[in-house]
Amino acid sequence: MYSASDLKKGLKIEIDGDPCMITNFEFSKPGKGQALYRCKIKNLISGNQFDKTYRSVEKVKRCSLMSRDYTFSYIDGDDYVFSDNTTYEEVHLNDELLGDLKKFIVDDMKVEILFHDDRALDITLPNFVEMNIAETEPGARGDTATNVMKPAKLENGFEINVPIFINEADTIRIDTRTGTYADRVSKG
């Protein structure tokens, strides 16, 4: 448990079972009154922001967040299944948690998953992933402009925008942080 005077900006705490982060913090002590700790708090699961004022006698629950290394294993219905690199224990991540990142998950990809107790909160992919182009309109020969984009279907069926000179069977590198084409690794 933290006591209210330990609170500070950036600290992660647990409120009603949810991991939260203090995004703004203000010490306040109204004339002759008690010390108050006014916090802006973000719920790390819902993303909701709210204000909360703690009195100095209040205790605040610590939040134990832990990241562990996993490897992508297989798709099970709507879930993506990863296995723990040391214990081989499987974890299922759903569509909602993965969001757009699921487009860039490839076989045997090494990822980092952030847990609050046993609940997975977030996944971090390697910054770059190499993927093959399964399908795209042929580009004009000799056109190497990188600012003209066209849609292309990746090996896993998801779409991404690529420069016009990219062809089917090319291997490209994608920046998973922005979800955009980075460069061409090899021609198909």
Partner: peptide, 8 residues
């Protein structure tokens, strides 16, 4: 309540 309403 007084202290908290005063600052909030």
């Amino acid at each position: 309540r007084f202290d908290i309403d005063l600052v909030e």
